[in-house]
Design a binder for these strands. Structure first.
Ligand SMILES: NC(=O)c1ccc[n+]([C@@H]2O[C@H](COP(=O)([O-])OP(=O)(O)OC[C@H]3O[C@@H](n4cnc5c(N)ncnc54)[C@H](O)[C@@H]3O)[C@@H](O)[C@H]2O)c1
Ligand SMILES: NC(=O)c1ccc[n+]([C@@H]2O[C@H](COP(=O)([O-])OP(=O)(O)OC[C@H]3O[C@@H](n4cnc5c(N)ncnc54)[C@H](O)[C@@H]3O)[C@@H](O)[C@H]2O)c1
Lengths: 206, 206
DNA sequence: ATGTATTTGTGCAAATTTGCACTTATGCTT
DNA sequence: AAGCATAAGTGCAAATTTGCACAAATACAT
């Protein structure tokens, strides 16, 4: 248990554990085990125990893990024991669905500004937000100290916006545009492209 | 180069290669190299060469890969040299955005039916589709021989719908609900949950 | 108290995944 | 024609990831 960097593949599983534990908490369960959690997620119990043990000893032998306690620990580890302000860029169909989505807040995120460059959309509502012009995005993000952004603009626009976001000090970008972006390596980026998932499945289908 | 099963982690990268190559094709490029492709994707050139070599010898030494040819090969390997019919369940905000999305068709998929159980939505349009009642979903999917589904219903409803989809012969499910589902192991399932990605990034942010 | 059933945390081995570095092939320049 | 630069495909070693299996700890029943 030394201070070596923890593999990213482990970090990637922690939010999944957190999500499953949060669901258990709503089921009035107090305790769970690595085995039960693993069964729900399709992950081996040994892996869950080993993953968690990277960060401390959260369980009790013979008993298992206290769900609320483990949720707290995971939220602390993942830095979602706070609410992150998020900028959303792109108020099209998808952007509006995201702006309207109520599932961010209780998991550590809240949208605080929605941007679009279409004059017909600027000034109009998107969910509970008023769409803002992209023109001033850099200054506004700096002023508001926003560090996380979601990108729901056309692929052709994504790199240009990403460059501005980086300039504005954004540290994490979730990109819905189906394209790979270049960002400095100290800026985190993740992608969501449903077609990649679909194609990964059809490979196995004759 | 024998007939051993190809690791899923490799399969997962192929759609990414395909996407990047398709973009190159629109840039009037004819040839690329594992190095160029890797640079775009942030993947080592050796990995790309090794991944592709699992399926045949697609490149030419000293030259590289013919982009159109490689696209064809990848489409064949991933079974997207055809158009898959897809059922979409859930015509809420996200479902409507998906129904409206024009980016599926040229990558191997087309939505052919949209379902919802809200009487106010059934019969109404969602994109170019008329929302259908979920009541008859099993029979209709069987009749239409649909084998791929996207799930955009509340998490609490997802397992119930998934069970029906499985009964209807669906072989691949893309689930947007933030929950883990139980399906038979011969049914493929993939998940999209933006919060998992966000939390994975905030871990690294002080 | 004692014994039994659980379940964690972990050392170690197995399995998987990555990438170096080399051979071979190709095209281009001189 | 010869030499050089480029780049694929691959054997092998390194690195990473997974999981078995066991000691230690706990709860609970008798
Ligand atoms: N809708 C989906 O279900 C879906 C699915 C997969 C991927 N995507 C991707 O998500 C992105 C958005 O999809 P969508 O369906 O909402 O598209 P959309 O065309 O409805 O919306 C795009 C929005 O971005 C705005 N925009 C364009 N350029 C901009 C710029 N430079 N600055 C700010 N705003 C700008 C447009 O005005 C528009 O409102 C696209 O990249 C798309 O490929 C969408
Ligand atoms: N909107 C987003 O950006 C977003 C982001 C992340 C995740 N999600 C997830 O995607 C799913 C859909 O999100 P949304 O924002 O569109 O929600 P929504 O409430 O707008 O839409 C859900 C739709 O599902 C329908 N529905 C409910 N039960 C059904 C059933 N049994 N059969 C058929 N239809 C049923 C409802 O009538 C409604 O139209 C949710 O699980 C949500 O958590 C959405």
């Amino acid at each position: 248990m030394c201070a070596a960097a923890i593999p990213d593949i482990i970090i990637g599983r922690l939010p999944l554990y957190l999500r499953a534990l949060s669901k258990m908490a709503t089921e009035d369960k107090e305790i769970t085990s690595s085995q039960e959690l693993g069964a729900r997620l399709g992950i081996s119990s040994a892996q869950i125990r080993k993953d968690l043990s990277q960060f401390g000893e959260f369980g009790k032998q013979g008993t298992g893990y206290n769900i609320v306690f483990l949720i707290d620990q995971l939220r602390r580890i993942l830095h979602v024991n706070q609410i992150w302000d998020v900028a959303l860029i792109g108020a099209g169909d998808l952007g509006k669905a995201i702006a309207n989505y109520g599932g961010f807040l209780n998991r550590g995120f809240q949208i605080v500004a929605v941007y679009d460059n279409d004059p017909h959309k600027v000034g109009q509502p998107a969910g509970k937000y008023i769409v803002r012009a992209t023109r001033n995005i850099v200054d506004e993000i700096i002023t508001k100290k926003i560090r996380v952004a979601m990108l729901a603009v056309p692929a052709s626009e994504a790199q240009g916006i990403a460059d501005q976001l980086v300039k504005a000090g954004i540290r994490a970008i979730l990109c819905y545009a189906p394209t790979s972006l270049k960002v400095p390596e100290d800026v985190r980026i993740q992608y969501i492209d449903p077609v990649l998932h679909l194609q990964r499945m059809t490979y196995y289908m004759p």
